[in-house]
């Protein structure tokens, strides 16, 4: 990293609690964090430590109870719901553990969703979706529905969908947990390329030790707190 890194995510003193009284769960306790464009940032830790909650907050699908969240220059804590919806539409690509593809649509239609949401015409969306599928190696499957594909292929569709509208933030929640280790590795290689190729920030939540080697940096979490942030082994020389 020769130039000064541009911050993509700036989170300071964020807390999040669910429920009230006896049932109160403090999922995040005073978390601060910074991640940069061009970086593959991992959130790791045991199940229930607050990784998904933190990811949801930094991609604005969830609002923090307190603290400040600034992503790609936008102050998410102050923004209205409409503003947040637009923010996600324009800036965020999603990859989920359970893929969350729409089973009744072809994979091309699935991938075209972010483009259609962004107001692109149907034929342009269709063409770009096919190109994106081509890039993840599924150019020969464009007319199939997700159910006809293996788990790894489905996750590749999800990645194509996350990338198709060229967002600058890509959030991945346990992207490999539902896959065997070889397939998981392939998926991570695709994501790695994404983080390398363009000025993007990729945030990966995982408790899968097999893929930790892909991290530029990783934040270890426990019980709603970040214990430490370490530089990963990947591209240590870059």
């Amino acid at each position: 990293m020769s130039d000064a890194p541009i911050p993509a995510i700036q989170i300071s003193h964020v807390s999040k609690s669910f429920g009230q009284g006896q049932a109160l769960v403090e999922a995040l306790k005073d978390v601060s964090l910074e991640a940069f464009l061009g970086e593959m940032f991992f959130l790791v830790g045991p199940s229930g430590c607050g990784k998904t909650t933190l990811l949801s907050i930094l991609c604005s699908t969830l609002k923090p109870t307190s603290g400040n969240v600034k992503v790609l220059g936008t102050d998410l804590t102050a923004a209205s719901n409409r503003r947040l919806t637009r923010f996600r539409r324009e800036h965020v690509g999603f990859v989920f553990q359970q893929f969350n593809l729409i089973p009744t649509l072809t994979i091309t239609e699935n991938v075209s969703v972010p483009l259609l949401l962004a107001g692109r015409g149907a034929s342009a969306a269709n063409r770009l979706a096919k190109e994106a599928l081509d890039r993840v190696g599924l150019g020969d499957k464009i007319a199939l529905r997700p159910g006809k594909l293996s788990g790894g292929q489905q996750q590749r569709v999800a990645i194509a969908r996350a990338l198709v509208h060229s967002p600058d933030l890509i959030v991945c929640d346990e992207p490999t947990s539902a896959l065997d280790s070889e397939t998981g590795h392939q998926i991570m290689e695709i994501l790695d390329e994404v983080a390398r190729d363009s000025k993007r920030c990729v945030i990966v939540v995982t408790h899968d030790p097999r893929i930790l080697g892909f991290a530029d940096r990783l934040a270890e979490m426990e019980d709603g707190r970040i214990l430490k942030i370490t530089t990963g082994t990947a591209h240590a020389t870059g």
Binding site: C59, T61, R82, T85, R86, F87, R88, R89, E90, V92, F94, F96, Q98, N100, I102, P103, V113, P114, L117
Partner: peptide, 18 residues
């Protein structure tokens, strides 16, 4: 049954009017 898909649309930035 489409709740997951609809939630995904919402996450991806589909507005309520849409």
């Amino acid at each position: 049954e489409n709740a997951r898909s609809i939630a995904a649309f919402k996450a991806m930035g589909a507005s309520m009017p849409l």
